[in-house]
Amino acid sequence: MLIYTRVIMFFLLGMVFFNDVPKDNLYLKGYVIFAVIVFVCNHFLIISEKHVRISFYLILLDGLLSFSFGIFFPHMTLYLILFGIVAVTLAIHESSKIRLWMGFAMFFLSWGIVMVYSARVMGDWAIFENLISGSFVGFGAVVGSLIRKLYDAQETMDAQYKQLNESHVALTDAHQQLRLYSEQVESLTTIRERNRIARDIHDTVGHKMTALIVQLELARELLKLDSRKSEDTLKTCDNLARGALQELRFSVRTLHEDEGEEYRFIPMIRTMLNDFRESTQLEAKLSVSGDPVVVPISLQPTLIRIIQESVTNAKRHGGATICHIKLNCSEEEILLVIIDNGMGTGLISKGFGLINMKERIEEHGGSVTFESNEGEGFCVKVQFPLLERTWTAGKKV
C-alpha cells in the first residue's frame, strides 16, 4: 500500500503543478509531465532489488527534480512536499549515515537557494509557508527512519525464525540419531550381558558339573570299597548339583528379565536369598539405604552375582549361619558390604570365585576388598563410583 501511495502522491502533485502552468506555456507543461514520468520510473527502479546499488543516485535525481519545481514555481512552496516524499524514501532505503547526512545537506542547500530565488522574484520570503511545508520534510524523514527500523526488525525476526527453524530441524535430526544410538547401545548392552551370563554359566555351572562328574566317578569306585566314604561323596555330589541348579535358575531368571520385562532389582535379590535359605538354611538379612532406582541397569546383574557368590562362599567355605548384606545407594556411588559369621581365615586365598568376582567388579570401574580374621567371619566390601570411574593399568589380580 505504501508503494502505491507514493505513486499517487506524485500524480496528484503533478496535476497541481500542471494546472498552475499558464495555458500558453507548453514547454513548462511538458516538463511537468516529463518530471512526473521520471518520478514514477525512478520509484519502480528504487524498490527493485536489482537496482539497490544505484538507488541513492535515483533518490538524488528525485531531489533534483523537486528542486527544479521550486525554481519553476517560485510562488509556491508545494515543492517541499515533493522533498518530503524524497526524504521518506531516502530514510527507508539508505542505511549509510554518510549518505543520509549528504542527502539532507543537499536538501537544506536546495531549500536555501529556492527561498532566495523566490524572494527576489516574488519580493516575499514567505517564511511561514516555508516553515509549514519544510516541517513536512522533517516529518517524512522521521517516518522513513521508523519504517526503516520496522523493516530491519522484520528482517531480524525472519532471520531468527529461519535460524530457529534450522535449529529445530537439526535438533530433530540429533534426537533421531540419539534415539537410534540409544537403541544400538541398548542392543549392544543386552548382547554383552547375555555373553556375560553365558560366560558365567560356563564358569560356574560348568565348573560345578565337572566337579560333579568327578565326584560321581569317585563315588562309583568307593561304593565297591567303602560305603561310608561313598555316602559322603554322594552328599558332595548333592551339594554340587544343588549349587549348579541354583546358578541355572538365576541365569534363566536374568535372561527372562532381559527379554523385555521390568527388571526388579531388589525383589530378585530377595528371591535369590529366599531360595538359597531353603536349600542351605543360611539366614540372610538384607538392608537397603537410599533409592535403588539410581543403580544402573547394567550394574544390577553384577551386584546380584556378587551377593550370590558371597553367600555361597559364606556357607560353603565358612560354614556361616547368618549373613548381613548392606546396600547403600546414592547418586555418587553404590556401596555393598557383605558380612557373615563364618569361621573366617587368617590368610585369604583368592580362588576361582573371588577372582571372577574381582574381574567382574573391575569391568564396571569398581573396587573390592576382602577382610577376614580367624574366627571372625568374612567381609566383602564393594564400591562402584557413579560419577567417575577409574581403572588401574597393569595391576595384577
Score class of each variant (00 low, 15 high):
residue 44 F to I: 07
residue 378 F to R: 08
residue 304 I to S: 14
residue 190 T to Q: 14
residue 183 E to V: 05
residue 258 D to N: 14
residue 169 V to T: 15
residue 353 G to K: 09
residue 168 H to G: 10
residue 18 F to W: 14
residue 168 H to A: 12
residue 34 F to N: 03
residue 6 R to W: 03
residue 85 I to A: 13
residue 250 F to I: 00
residue 165 N to E: 13
residue 228 R to W: 04
residue 132 I to A: 10
residue 188 L to F: 00
residue 239 N to G: 00
residue 117 Y to E: 11
residue 11 F to G: 13
residue 75 H to R: 07
residue 224 K to W: 00
residue 177 Q to T: 05
residue 100 L to W: 05
residue 177 Q to W: 00
residue 344 G to P: 02
residue 382 V to E: 08
residue 381 K to M: 06
residue 138 G to C: 08
residue 21 V to A: 12
residue 265 F to N: 02
residue 208 K to H: 01
residue 364 H to V: 04
residue 127 I to F: 05
residue 280 T to D: 02
residue 271 T to S: 10
residue 57 Y to G: 10
residue 65 L to P: 11
residue 181 Y to T: 12
residue 305 R to K: 05
residue 324 H to Q: 12
residue 86 V to F: 09
residue 201 I to Q: 06
residue 176 Q to L: 08
residue 44 F to Q: 08
residue 299 L to D: 12
residue 31 Y to T: 01
residue 265 F to H: 01
residue 272 M to A: 13
residue 268 M to Q: 11
residue 294 V to K: 04
residue 226 D to A: 03
residue 109 L to P: 09
residue 347 L to Y: 01
residue 116 V to T: 08
residue 129 E to K: 15
residue 233 T to E: 15
residue 20 D to Q: 09
residue 250 F to P: 01
residue 86 V to A: 15
residue 272 M to P: 10
residue 294 V to I: 07
residue 93 H to K: 12
residue 137 V to Y: 02
residue 313 N to I: 00
residue 14 G to C: 06
residue 105 A to M: 04
residue 8 I to M: 12
residue 106 M to S: 11
residue 38 V to E: 15
residue 312 T to A: 11
residue 40 V to F: 06
residue 302 T to Q: 11
residue 46 I to P: 04
residue 339 I to N: 12
residue 231 E to D: 04
residue 146 L to E: 14
residue 206 G to R: 02
residue 109 L to F: 15
residue 326 K to M: 03
residue 333 E to K: 14
residue 280 T to M: 00
residue 336 L to Q: 13
residue 35 A to F: 01
